[in-house]
Simulated scan of single mutants.
Amino acid sequence: MARPRSDSPLLFDIPLKPDFSVERRSRKRGVWPVAGTDEAGRGPLAGPVVAAAVILDPDAIPDGLDDSKRMTLEARERVYLTIIGSAISVGVASVCAVSIDRSDIRKASLEAMRRAVAALSLPPLLVLADGRDIPPGLACEGQALVKGDQRSQSIAAASIVAKVTRDRMLAHCGTIHPAYGFERHAGYGTEAHLAGIGAHGPLPGLHRMSFSPFKAA
C-alpha cells in the first residue's frame, strides 16, 4: 500500500470553485478510481458525525459543486440529488454520539470517513480526504487536502452528501424529540437548543456528554 500523503496549500492554490484537477492528474498516471471523502457534524452538541465518500463520473460531473457550508439549503438538496443520480458510487457512514464520547470527535470523524470509503461499491485506488488527516486503515493510497471541499469536486460532492444526510437524520430526531428543535439547528449549540437542554436535560445516546456544557456539569 502506498504511503499516505498530505499537503498544505498556499492561498493561490485554492480555486474560486472546486475543480477536477487532482482527480484528472491521478487518472492520467493510471490511478483510478478516485474517491473524495468528507464529514459533517464535528461541532454539534448532539447527534452522530456523518461521512460520505463519492466517486464522480468524469463525464457527468454535477453543476454547482462547492463546499457544502457555502451553499444554501435549497442548493445543497438540489445538487445532492444530482450527485446520487450521476456518481459512479456513493458511500455513507456515521459514528454515534456514544462512540464519540468513548474516543474523541477527531477519531470518530476519521472512522466515519473510513467506513464511508469501505461502503463504496467500487473500491478506489486513491482517496482524497478533506483536512490534514487521512483516515487510518484505508486499503488504498490516501491524500489529505487542506480545504479540500473548496479544491476537489469529489470532496465537495462528499461534503454535500454528508451534510444533507446528517441534516435529515437530525430533522427526524426533531420529530421524536420536539422539545429540542433538532430540525432547526441540527444539534448545534444554538440558544434554542441550550434552552431545550436546560428545560428537559440532555438525551442519553443522542447528546455528546463529553462536550461542553455537559462535561463541565
Rank of each mutant, 00 (worst) to 15 (best):
T72I: 08
T72R: 07
I88F: 00
I88S: 00
G85P: 02
G64Y: 06
T82M: 12
V95R: 09
A75G: 00
G64R: 12
E77W: 08
S68T: 06
D101S: 10
L65V: 00
V95H: 05
G64N: 07
G85F: 04
R76K: 11
A75V: 05
R102I: 00
S94Q: 11
V90K: 01
A75S: 13
S68N: 10
E74M: 09
D101V: 09
L73K: 14
I84S: 07
G85I: 05
S99G: 00
S89Q: 03
Y80F: 15
A75K: 14
V79H: 09
D101T: 10
T72G: 14
S86C: 10
I88M: 14
M71I: 06
G91A: 05
V95Q: 05
R102W: 01
V79I: 15
V98R: 07
T72N: 08
S68D: 13
V92S: 04
S103D: 11
A93Y: 08
A93N: 06
A97W: 07
T82Y: 01
D104I: 04
K69Q: 04
S103W: 00
R78W: 04
S68K: 10
A93H: 06
A93W: 00
V79W: 08
K69N: 11
G91F: 01
R70Q: 14
L65M: 00
L81G: 14
I83P: 11
A97L: 02
A87F: 03
E74H: 07
A87E: 02
V90G: 07
R70W: 00
S89E: 03
I100S: 04
A87M: 07
S94F: 04
L65W: 03
S94R: 13
I83A: 06
I88H: 01
G64D: 07
A75E: 14
R70D: 02
V98C: 04
V95L: 06
D104L: 03
V79N: 06
D67W: 11
S86W: 09
L73T: 13
V79R: 01
I100W: 02
E77P: 08
V92C: 05
R76M: 08
S89D: 12
A93P: 06
S68Y: 12
V98M: 02
V92R: 01
I100R: 06
D66G: 10
A93K: 12
V95D: 04
T72V: 05
G64L: 05
R102V: 00
A93L: 02
S99F: 01
A97M: 04
